[in-house]
Simulated scan of single mutants.
Amino acid sequence: MSTHIKKLEDLLLVNVPADLADTQILGLRRAILAGIERERPRWLLLDFSEVEICDSFFGRFVETMVSMARLMGMRVVVCGLSDAVVETMVEMGFELPDVTSLLDIDDALAYTRRVRAAQPR
């Protein structure tokens, strides 16, 4: 599994690195999908705190990664989106329906723990 992808309990945590080339973005997407298939987590947490800029290719990566993960049965949480990335994604028309978005990884981990604890076993 990529060094940017870690399994924590029933959560797959992805620290998305800054300044990825398009081919690297595609490779990360494939690695995430393979990690979901192999590890069988119930949650996907995408941490974008290192990402400072967003172009249309990266915006599509975010949108399609979320859609793919949801189709594989994941609950998706995103965190760490900078104001510049959010502004660009909104201006380009990208949406993340049914996704919880939080400011940072601490909030995201606390949220997933709270929701998981409230779910019947």
Rank of each mutant, 00 (worst) to 15 (best):
V99Y: 05
L8H: 01
V76D: 10
S56P: 10
L102D: 08
G73Q: 00
F57R: 09
V16M: 05
E9Y: 03
F94S: 08
S82E: 04
V99T: 14
S101W: 09
L33V: 07
A84M: 13
V90I: 13
S82W: 01
Y111A: 14
E50Q: 11
V85S: 14
S82P: 06
F48P: 04
E91R: 12
L71M: 12
W43D: 00
I36Y: 00
A34L: 07
L71H: 02
R75M: 07
L71N: 03
M68G: 08
R113Y: 11
T3M: 15
M1L: 14
M1Q: 11
D98Y: 10
S82M: 02
A31W: 01
A84G: 00
R70A: 06
E50I: 07
T23Y: 04
D107Y: 12
L28P: 01
D107A: 12
F57L: 09
S49E: 12
I36Q: 00
L33C: 05
Q119N: 04
R70D: 10
T3E: 15
G59M: 11
D47T: 04
R38H: 13
R113C: 12
L12S: 02
E91I: 05
R29G: 09
S2K: 07
S101T: 09
L103T: 13
V14T: 12
N15R: 14
L81S: 07
M65K: 11
I36H: 01
V115I: 15
D19K: 05
D10K: 01
S82H: 14
S101Q: 14
G73K: 00
Y111H: 14
F94D: 03
A84T: 02
M89F: 06
A18C: 00
L96D: 09
N15P: 00
P17S: 14
L20S: 00
M92T: 00
F57A: 09
L71K: 02
R38T: 08
T100Q: 13
R60L: 06
R38Y: 10
F57W: 10
D104H: 14
E91M: 02
A21R: 13
A21P: 03
L44K: 02
G93S: 10
V86R: 11
L103K: 14
L46N: 03
F57I: 09
T64S: 13
R116F: 04
L20E: 10
R70V: 03
A117F: 11
L33Y: 09
L46G: 07
R70W: 04
D22P: 05
A117M: 15
R42S: 04
D83S: 13
L103F: 12
L11T: 13
F61M: 08
V14D: 02
Q24E: 15
C54K: 11
E87H: 15
V76E: 06
P97Y: 12
S82D: 06
E50M: 13
T3A: 11
